[in-house]
Design a protein around this nucleic acid. Sequence first.
DNA 1: CCCCATGTTGTAGG
DNA 2: TCCTACAACATGGG
Length: 261
Amino acid sequence: MPELPDVEVYRQYINATSLHQKITGIVVKSDRVLSGISAQKLSATLKGFELDSTDRHGKYLFVCLDNGTSVMMHFGMTGDVKYFKGDDDVVYDQLRLDFDNGYHLAYISRRKLGKISFVSDIEEFIRSKKLGPDALSLDQDEFRERIGKSRGSVKSTLMNQKIIAGIGNVYSDEILFHSRLHPQAKVQKLGDRKMLVLFGNMRRVLQMAIKCRTQPEKFPRSYLIPFRRKKEKCPACTGEIKGIKVSGRTAYYCPACQKKV
DNA sequence: CCCCATGTTGTAGG
DNA sequence: TCCTACAACATGGG
């Protein structure tokens, strides 16, 4: 589930498992996920070096090496990272790093819609993708300033990576649910008050998701995520959850709790 | 077999 | 210029 919270959990996981160990080998199972680099170049650049630190901007993860380059990982619609020992079983791993302690780090992408590339300057990469500020790094004023320019729906605006980076289909639904806003509510109809509520909920939802390590069963009872399906009961009013298309994606919401203004 | 799925990118049209 | 709709990408689940 690779939106901001998922990618942040992957980042913390890599920090806890894979830093400061010599990379002894690289296996690329599918070069479809490689963007602008060859498997040979990737191997040559990583082999013999160590992972030093990690960084994240929105849904993009950067793994920084002790030779100055960073490996950018994006997960598309499906993805995970897994640190494992010896010949343990890992499926859908498209890239695997071998460390000198006998462990491996796998980049997993079942649908191969993810991307891996080299990035020499992270800020430059963010500019080139025209990404907005990370959803957990911008403040209230910047939020209002950026969101306020949109004439579209709140949901599509929150999901627009050029306005704010990190929010996708699932978490935009969750943020709107807590803000009692209909996914098709127009940004221009929000008053100052609703705008602040939205900002607060964006932060709370994303932070809670990271705290729960994005595992649905760990979320508080008041969260929509475990019920994010048609015909489920709304956790707030026990009404029925509805699914509609917004900007090409299915938005799940409670018609009784969430209003257009 | 059909439809759907947590994302991004490019195209087309209003 | 900005917004929406849609297809494509690849793969599996219901």
